[in-house]
Computed example of a mutant assay.
Amino acid sequence: MLQSFKLAIKSIWSNKMRSFLTMLGIIIGVASVIILVSLVNAYMSYMTESFASLGTNQITVNMVNLPSRSVSVDEMYAFYDENTESFDHMTPMVSISAIVKNGTDSMTSTSVSGVSEDYLGVKDWMLAYGRNVQYADITARHKVCVIGAYVANELYGSAEKAYGETIKVNGYAFQIVGVVEQQDDDLEEGGTDDFLFMPYSCAVKMARNANINNYTFTIRDLSAATEGKTLIEDFLYEKFKNEDLYTVTAMSEMLDSLNSMIAMVSAGLGGIAGISLLVAGVGVMNIMLVSVTERTREIGIRKALGAKRSVIMQQFVIEAAVTSSLGGVIGILLGSIATSTIGALAGLNATPTPMAVIVSFSVSVGIGLLFGYMPASRAAKLNPIDALRSE
């Protein structure tokens, strides 16, 4: 075995250019698999993290309240109170299209919402200053609000300065009773920190809409998301008797679907890149057949001196496997460097996927063994006398 390995290295080294061209297909194939799979996984991981930041424990409810069939806030709270073993928080959601102003400075991109005292719990946010919207604010329709760090910085210079000040929403004056801690690394317009929320009772009055159509629940156990969703759907069906009048969406189920799609895309791209490895295998076989033809006299001499068929076959199989393995190692190195470089340029945290590295290298070695077998078998079957006569 050791002698066959040495002979394989010697043969590869004595034909450097031909050996490199033989390896090139393997190198490209292995590198392609690693780059494509790793970059797709990095991009999808980024998407998953972005999606997860929306709250995987949340269930959103959207309804169409009709004069004849509707669900009031009190009914939703009664349902929530009956199922607190399943749900952790619940808040009505009333979105308003509004201009937020402080003096002559105004903001049009700010997300303005009417919520309950549970909203901070739903979002899992902490306050930097002040307090949250309270139940008393909702019942008395106090004109108070809580703002994000971006709004505080843009209109007042800092969260500390914003606390306790007055801000105008569509011309109505609200007192800032709280400022939420900064969520994003960078404060930007339309970002996570660009928001204002107030008691939902005030938002309903400003929106001139007596019905609240949107609610957000959080579930206590992420594994019971489907059960929580079913509870809400059953309750709403009893009220509406028409599934078209409401939509219940569990974020965790959407995330599961996204993960399934990630796996399919990654496997598909890996398979496409893997086709180049198959083409490379044909190249290895062709070169090995040429090598057998060139070394026919050598094979004849070795067989005449007593070399067994298995030894001859072993020599050529090992040579093909070593060629493919070297190509695989070079492909892994190039693929790893390219993955990190392209990932950095694209702003992704891309690292070579261990599974892609293992599978691509294993396939490259397997290709060497598989496609090297036929030339090796042909060499082993040569008649010593005919081989010695070969020129």
Rank of each mutant, 00 (worst) to 15 (best):
G366A: 04
M17F: 13
E227H: 14
S310F: 07
Y43I: 10
K143V: 02
V33D: 11
Y200S: 04
A78V: 09
K6W: 15
L66V: 03
A207L: 09
P375F: 14
S50T: 08
L305V: 12
L333Q: 03
I318T: 15
S325Y: 09
N15V: 02
A203I: 11
Y80R: 10
Y172W: 08
L2G: 13
L196W: 11
N170Q: 02
A225G: 05
V365F: 09
Y163T: 06
S53P: 02
C145D: 04
L334D: 11
M23F: 06
G283V: 06
M288E: 12
R295L: 02
G29H: 10
F371G: 01
Y200K: 13
A52V: 15
L278D: 12
L277E: 08
C145M: 07
A149Q: 07
E117Q: 15
A250M: 01
S106K: 12
Y129N: 15
Q175H: 13
K205E: 15
I59N: 09
Y156G: 05
I99P: 04
P354V: 08
R18E: 13
I232G: 09
T218N: 05
I147E: 13
S291L: 04
I34S: 07
M264W: 09
N286F: 10
A380P: 00
F195H: 08
I301M: 14
A267S: 15
Y46L: 14
S53L: 07
I99Q: 08
A136Q: 15
M126W: 02
L222T: 15
T84W: 02
F371C: 02
K16Q: 12
Q175N: 15
N153S: 09
M374F: 14
R69M: 06
S4E: 08
S223D: 13
V284G: 10
T323R: 01
I34L: 04
V37W: 03
I337P: 06
A140S: 13
K168A: 10
Y200C: 09
T230G: 11
G331F: 03
L333C: 12
I332V: 15
T353L: 05
I358Q: 08
M107I: 12
